[in-house]
């Protein structure tokens, strides 16, 4: 806990200082880092429902797309300024999560995964049919030529999401979420209103995701259903979180940093098939050899490496 606490403080300080960087960076680096902040925020948001609460959502990308479309609609059709539009997007995304979560969060395991997956796919198909949203051909937003603006907004969202996670992890609410993950029935008989806590966790997760989606829409100036409802975002949220350590405070950001760095090294700009093959191999590696993510190694150093424990754990998980 001590080492973990220092790590959180250290990362928040580094992130806060990186706000000073943009004037010294070329356009490409500003772009890369903005994207990194965005993916980290998405992973931090996923971690609240998937990592802390134990509900592996494949539908979080829905809130990214919803946030993007809500912002685009508010700015384009209603001529709202960005900040009002973004706030609107956050509210819409959180409300959608609460609405969907009430029935869906009663499902467990595979059924929850499928239900959220089908919401993600269904939402994309549904939005592609709506006239006010430009049907399948998408929407355009006003152009803001100041790309440093998006760097700062995404960074802000990330820092807020980390601080929020740290606050929740130490709060009464955070203990409810973890108790639900560990054993929902036991949580209920200790007085936890599991249904409400789960919905609240998903709504907060959706609010962060919606904020990132709204900012992405303005940044990209153009959105269409396949872009903002892209399931790959959802998968990346999960992989980044698992790589860093699910249910930890800054694990998702660390996982996102590593994956983004690898992606950059392999040339993330051109979506090459080899890039995806390597991503697949990394997932296989994480799932089999790093089920708890990197966090134990970051707080405990190489002492955390224990071949015997790893082998015992593998023995327990296979037949």
């Amino acid at each position: 806990m001590q080492a973990g606490g220092r790590l959180v403080v250290g990362i928040v300080i580094v992130l806060a200082l990186s706000a000073l960087l943009p004037p010294h960076l070329n356009g490409n680096w500003v772009h890369v880092l903005t994207l990194f902040f965005m993916m980290s925020s998405l992973a931090q948001a996923w971690n609240l429902i998937g990592g802390f609460t134990g509900y592996a959502s494949f539908g979080n990308v829905t809130f990214f797309g919803t946030g993007a479309y809500a912002c685009a609609y508010a700015m384009d059709a209603m001529r709202w300024p960005f900040w009002t539009a973004a706030l609107f997007a956050v509210v819409v995304a959180a409300a959608l999560a609460a609405l969907l979560g009430w029935p869906i969060l009663r499902l467990r395991g595979h059924y929850f995964a499928i239900a959220t997956l089908s919401i993600a796919v269904g939402m994309q198909a549904l939005v592609a049919q709506q006239e006010p949203f430009g049907k399948g051909s998408g929407m355009t937003l006003p152009i803001n030529p100041n790309f440093h603006f998006f760097y700062w907004v995404m960074l802000g969202i990330l820092i807020v999401s980390i601080l929020l996670t740290a606050f929740i992890a130490r709060s009464r609410f955070g203990y409810a979420l973890v108790a639900i993950r560990e054993n929902e029935e036991a949580a209920a008989v200790l007085g936890i209103n599991a249904a409400r806590a789960k919905v609240a966790a998903w709504a907060i997760s959706a609010a962060i995701t919606g904020a990132a989606g709204a900012t992405f829409a303005y940044w990209n100036t153009f959105i269409d259903p396949p872009t903002v409802f892209d399931l790959n975002y959802n998968v990346l949220m999960i992989i980044m979180t698992l790589l860093g350590g699910a249910g930890t405070i800054v694990g998702p950001t660390i996982g996102s940093f590593i994956l983004s760095a690898i992606g950059e090294y392999l040339g993330a700009q051109s979506i090459s098939p080899w890039h995806t093959v390597v991503l697949g191999a990394i997932i296989v590696f994480i799932v089999i050899l790093l089920p708890r993510g990197l966090m134990p190694y970051l707080t405990g150093g190489l002492r955390a490496f224990n071949l015997g424990a790893l082998r015992a754990q593998l023995r327990a998980s296979r037949v």
Partner: peptide, 16 residues
């Protein structure tokens, strides 16, 4: 290797 691990593991593995 992970057949008895939590469901997310096999889900992600087959996705990968």
């Amino acid at each position: 290797q992970v057949i008895r691990a939590p469901m997310l593991a096999t889900f992600l593995l087959t996705f990968a």
